[in-house]
Amino acid sequence: MSASDLEVAYGGVPAGKEDVYSKQPVLSARKLVITFGRVVGLDGVDLDLYPGEVLAVIGDNGAGKSTLIKCLTGAYVPDSGEITMSGQPVHFKKPQDAREAGIETVYQQLAVIPALDIASNLYLAREERRKGPLGSVLRMLDKKGMERRAGDAVQNLGIQTIQNMGQAVETLSGGQRQAVAVARAAAFGSKVVVLDEPTAALGVKESGMVLDMVKQLRDKGQSIILISHNMPHVWEVADRIHIQRLGGRAGVITPQTHDMGEGVAIMTGATKLSQDSAA
């Protein structure tokens, strides 16, 4: 069964969005395999992320969610298989490669520096220097400029929860820190934003805030991969849901065609998606 057959068979196209899914995926993986000694991490996984959609990746512990994401973000190098971005094959040796190709990841442990302010965090590892000899010879940072542009970027993303760019991140709440991390991933024209369990450590209200932010980003055309254990959150924001099971893709469903119970059943292997049951 070819990849496009799978797509059809598992009915992963939301109604009314057929035009989006006739386009080329912004990120696509084919038959990814990775093994750790005798343990098979990924057993020929396919994944497609289309422009401007939220693709949720769900799966039980050990199903290969994290492994799949790490292959897509350069943290692991797959043993075999192919990853393409907008049709072009890419080979990531390290996270920085994926980042340079336009895949930004917000890790579960957030990867923000508490002691640095918001602007410094947004620009961390992509600092801009001053113009002229102050920047080129003395390597002076353009602190004011970065702070201003960080503020603009956050405004453009529609993130209202963070205001003062000079505020140290350690003074922010968990949800605000998450917002900084997401803004950092989305603010610089990235093609794909990967969110790893963005609501895992948050309360109800703050989770809602982060989910709103995800929707806003999507509405601005950002392609997002969302890894989550939280089914209500997934069903709230996802356009399509990639279900990972036993190192392979059990199927791709949508919140419209399948309810949470069915999704969990596929995830745990209680039901199998077949051509008959697909929408």
């Binding site: 920085q96 520096i113 961390l124 390597r139 940072l141």
Partner: peptide, 28 residues
Amino acid sequence: SFVLSQTAWGRYVYAVGDDAESARLSGV
């Protein structure tokens, strides 16, 4: 003092000291 407060390198020194893993994941 100039290097620590005004350059990217200085900022990385603080970032690595504050949270080495986060700094690495951020591309430092």
